[in-house]
């Protein structure tokens, strides 16, 4: 120990410090640039493998109200995002996340980000919150990311039909939340991939989460599924037709979050019995959670 009795991490080389900075959150790492002249040069040259652009995790959020005035901070956010994306020199990215409301006039930014993400084609996780992205564009993106394990889409008003066909053998976690106009989710897998899937999925947890009751068809994929989570609005369940459901032979964990609406003279929407179709579709069910 060179510093006598001082208990400090005082003599680590720049290389080691950079490896440490790579392991902490991008914001925390950037904050270290204020430590000293030497440290100022360390953070920008770190290669972040997790890029998380979420306005709520920055100082843009009001400390007291926990709210963000998105219109006011938009230039700052976009400037930051641009800086982060253009200064990235990491050879690979594990996680790329952007969380901010954008309008059509910002499509340039979105293009830059998508290009950035596309350049790192070994992306394993993609989360798009409140980005209006159409099904076609999403499919195009997905067909590019062969290593994608996790896809999270939230609040995309442009997402009408999502068709996932035969393209991503590694995809294990798919979440689609609050896409108001979503009509249909179709997941197909051809035989060769089925083999691959069952092999890959043997010790992992697969989720299929979907908000919309308008989801009609889920093909083949159902065979591997072990966890199914649905958020249902009983008001919107068709009153006469029963939900058209596939069988989920491997689903052990079923989570149903049910919204019961108020309707003055029609009580049929309160009939929880209709939920039995979901349970019946899962013959090996272990765990049922009802909220």
């Amino acid at each position: 120990v060179q510093n006598g009795n001082k208990d400090r991490l005082s003599s680590l080389s720049d290389d080691i410090l950079v490896s440490i900075l790579q392991l902490i959150d991008m914001n925390d790492a950037t904050r270290t640039s204020i430590l000293s002249r030497r440290w100022r040069n360390l953070a920008p040259c770190s290669f972040f493998t997790i890029v998380d652009l979420d306005a709520k995790k920055t100082s843009l959020i009001d400390c007291k109200t926990r709210c963000i005035s998105y219109n006011d901070v938009k230039p700052i956010f976009l400037n930051w995002a641009h800086k982060v994306v253009t200064s990235q020199r990491a050879p690979f990215i594990n996680d790329f996340r952007v969380c901010f409301p954008l309008s059509h006039s910002d499509s340039n930014c979105l293009c830059t980000w998508i290009k950035f993400a596309m350049a790192k084609d070994n992306l394993t996780s993609l989360c798009l919150s409140f980005i209006n992205i159409s099904g076609e564009l999403l499919e195009l993106l997905l067909s590019h990311f062969h290593h994608l394990k996790r896809l999270y889409v939230e609040g995309s008003d442009d997402l009408l039909d999502l068709e996932i066909i035969n393209s991503f053998e590694k995809l294990k976690y798919l979440a689609v939340h609050r896409c108001t106009f979503l009509r249909k989710v179709e997941i197909y897998a051809v035989k060769i991939q089925m083999n691959l899937l069952s092999f890959e999925f043997s010790h992992s947890q697969e989720d299929f989460v979907c908000d919309s009751m308008n989801v009609n068809v889920m093909h083949c994929f159902a065979v591997q599924l072990t966890k199914l989570s649905l958020h249902l609005d009983l008001m919107k369940l068709s009153i006469y037709g029963d939900p058209h459901l596939l069988s989920f032979p491997n689903v052990k964990y079923l989570e149903l979050q049910v919204i019961i609406g108020h309707h003055p003279y029609d009580w049929s929407h309160l009939n929880l019995l209709r939920l039995r179709y979901y349970a019946e579709a899962c013959p090996v069910l272990d765990n049922l959670k009802l909220q």
Partner: peptide, 21 residues
């Protein structure tokens, strides 16, 4: 080390790494 400095203030990090501002 990354885990132990994650949520520290600038002052605390300066102290741990013996950094002069």
């Amino acid at each position: 080390i990354a885990d132990s400095i994650k949520d520290l203030t600038v002052q605390q990090i300066r102290q741990i790494f013996d950094i002069k501002n």
